[in-house]
Design a protein around this nucleic acid. Structure first.
Length: 473
DNA sequence: ATGTCC
């Protein structure tokens, strides 16, 4: 406690305003410069009270200048509205305060038309994960998320789910052979496959994308890390679905979760930085910097975002095709959806840009997939087109604890027992992906009954994720 | 999420 790191709240308590001076002070504090916490707090108080005395100070001049100029700078910033637009929260009691605070800031943005918070929401950069935001002709790179086009795909095969018992070894080998995980990982030249997405003319027209094309090729059909997975499981239809034309029964399914790999990450980083230089917002809203779609930069991002989305889709397609061919299976149905993306949609008779950052599109009749965790079911759903939710639903159960907290507190033995108990084979994965680190999917689903109907249940049985070394097999 | 800071 004595030497605890000084944070924004400590500075606000000293009288600092929540603007760029806070950032300048925290940046200085990050080095501490040999001062104790108490000495540093006294310094910060003194600089705030008499900034002119510090304009030549080797450490504090940057802060002093920021304080002296703050009124001028604040006047040049794009102002937030005083009153946030009202928005609906689903499953509010299970959502951390930080996510709601972030949403409130987003609702004060001058371009904001409407918003909604999904029941799996938690804090992110700018817009919370599980946040849906409709804007007027503007796109927020951090409203889409850093993994542009992160998405789900489910293949339902014409094979009985009993193969998971009778042919488990073959299925396990098939996943291991045809998937690749880990940050930065991809395929060697002779292992690569081709896909029409690589012929997109943007790879020749946009300099940034040109520089990323080769990496995109090497990573085509790979899965990456974090919460991404490829898994076999049981697809359960309790009754026939007339639209999909799938009979009641238990089928072998392949479910994948991944995004646009290095390509999307680089696009996101580039345009977030660009948006921040073009769109100067108050401190609390800096990560919500937006690009006007009537500008060249806005158009460029829109096209690059769509390419990253197509690329993410292609990655899933490659994985599903390889595995379907290896099994010699036929497809009964295939369902897929982005859950980190922005779309032009009509909301209450108005054209808006809908950002879904960790949210499943759920327009009336639109199908989507909401995964649980490695050891809990996911759901094939059909949207109800609820306008209060901007036609969206959650993109999963949502994290209950941070990755670091999960690795520090959860028991690997407990996870092992749970997997054995449920008959689940886990390949790779770290403790941060243990089911105990996630909210209860059933509670989350109950919170969004107005948003989606459940069509089928998916129970994971053979799960592959990136290995981060925090768990022994 | 991301070769986890060009």
């Amino acid at each position: 406690m004595e030497n605890k790191r000084i944070n924004g709240n400590d500075l606000i308590a000293l009288g600092y305003k929540e603007n760029h001076t806070l950032g300048a002070a925290l940046k200085i504090n990050s080095k501490r410069h040999g001062f104790t916490r108490a000495e540093m707090l006294a310094k910060f108080k003194s600089v705030l009270e008499n900034p002119t005395a510090y304009t030549e100070d080797i450490i504090f001049s940057v802060l002093a200048e920021a304080i002296l100029g703050q009124d001028v700078v604040d006047a040049t910033l794009i102002a937030l509205n005083e009153d946030p637009v009202e928005y609906t929260i689903y499953g509010a009691s299970g959502i951390e305060a930080g996510a709601k605070e972030q949403m409130k800031v987003a609702m004060k943005m001058p371009v904001t038309v409407a918003g909604a918070l999904m029941p799996d929401a938690h804090q992110g950069y700018g817009l919370p994960i599980g946040g849906v935001l409709a804007t007027d002709n503007a796109v927020i790179p951090y409203g889409v998320g850093v993994d542009i086009g992160c998405r789900m795909a489910l293949s339902i095969f014409d094979l009985p789910a009993s193969l998971l018992d009778t042919d488990a070894a073959t299925l396990k080998e098939t996943i291991l052979k045809h998937t690749r995980f880990g940050a930065g990982n991809g395929y060697l030249k002779h292992e690569r496959v081709d896909h029409a997405v690589l012929d997109n003319k943007l790879f020749a027209e946009n300099d940034l994308l040109k520089s990323l094309k080769d990496k995109a090729w090497t990573q085509l059909g790979s899965s990456g890390g974090g919460n991404h997975f490829v898994e076999f499981g049981i697809v359960e239809f309790v009754e026939k679905d007339e639209v999909l034309n799938v009979d009641k029964g238990l089928y072998l399914g392949l479910l994948t979760h991944s995004g646009s790999r290095g390509l999307g990450a680089t696009v996101a980083a580039h345009y977030t930085k660009l948006a921040k230089t073009l769109c100067k917002l108050p401190y609390q809203a800096q990560n919500l910097a937006y690009l006007d779609l009537n500008t060249m930069e806005g158009q460029e991002y829109w096209l690059a975002m769509n390419l990253a989305g197509d690329y993410a889709s292609a990655c899933h397609e490659v994985i599903h095709d390889k595995i379907k061919d290896a099994l010699g299976a036929e497809l009964l149905a295939k369902i897929e959806n982005h859950h980190n993306f922005a779309w032009k949609e009509t909301w209450n008779d108005r054209e808006v840009v809908v950002h879904r950052k960790g949210a499943t599109p759920a327009a009336k009749g639109v199908m989507g997939i909401i995964p649980g965790s490695m050891a809990t079911p996911g759901f094939l759903v059909r949207g109800k087109g609820e306008m209060a939710a901007i036609q969206s639903a959650s993109h999963g159960a949502g994290r209950l604890m941070s990755r670091t907290q999960a690795i520090k507190t959860l028991s690997a033995a407990e996870l092992k027992d749970m997997l054995a108990d449920r008959g689940i084979t886990l390949l790779g994965a770290g403790m941060d992906e243990a089911p105990m680190a996630y909210k209860d999917i059933h509670t989350v689903m109950a919170s969004q009954e107005e948003l989606v109907d459940v069509v089928a249940k998916f129970s994971p049985k053979i799960v592959r994720m990136a290995d981060d070394g925090s768990r022994e097999d």
